[in-house]
């Protein structure tokens, strides 16, 4: 159990670093475009394209962290009335569902990515088009890993319910 939690946290730490890089790039590059235009009357032709893709990149890494922290938007109207043990049980099931869905989303993204590789095309600055899209399968895999680890965690707590006041 300890290892599961450690892997989960380690992954989240790496994701935080990526997030800071992506959001930092977004803020600086987008602001630079405004300054370049108003002060120097010019702009980076590839700037906006990168900024827009950073939304996708930061979004997916943020989505992975949201999976880690259990902060994805959900309706969750029933679990409030459940006992702690049953709650862990249903959480294990919903996370298992999430793991499976993310697996298929990752597969679909991979199909999309390979089709794009075959079609060719450029992103910016000579980079091939698929590099911009690589975050999609990677992101779903990250989310899948977090969900999968949560299945183990909640499954564990369902079988061995912690004492009240515990995790």
């Amino acid at each position: 159990m300890r290892y599961v939690l450690a892997v989960d946290r380690g992954l989240a730490k790496a994701e935080t670093v990526l997030l800071v890089i992506f959001l930092g790039t977004m803020v600086l590059l987008a602001f630079a475009q405004v300054v370049l235009r108003n002060v120097f009357g010019t702009g980076l032709v590839w700037g906006d394209t990168i900024v827009r893709h950073m939304v996708l990149w930061a979004g997916f890494v943020g989505g992975a962290l949201a999976a880690f922290e259990g902060r994805h938007i959900s309706i969750d109207a029933l679990t409030k009335f459940l006992s702690r043990r049953v709650k862990h049980g249903t959480a294990a099931i919903t996370h298992l569902f999430g793991t499976i869905v993310c697996y298929y989303l990752a597969v679909a993204s991979w199909t999309f990515l390979t089709a794009e590789m075959e079609a060719g095309g450029e992103f910016v600055l000579g980079l091939p088009g698929w590099t911009a899209m690589a975050i999609i399968p990677a992101g779903y895999v990250m989310i899948m890993l977090h969900f999968g680890l949560k299945v183990i965690e909640h499954g564990w707590w369902t079988v061995r319910p912690p004492a009240e006041g515990g995790a």
């Binding site: 935080t16 997030l19 800071v20 959001l23 930092g24 939304v55 996708l56 930061a58 979004g59 997916f60 890494v61 943020g62 989505g63 992975a64 962290l65 949201a66 922290e69 902060r71 994805h72 938007i73 989310i143």
Partner: peptide, 14 residues
């Protein structure tokens, strides 16, 4: 940054 992008990630996934 992390806190704000958690929300953005959650929205973007939907």
């Amino acid at each position: 940054m992390r806190e704000s992008m958690l929300l953005v990630g959650a929205i973007l996934m939907i």
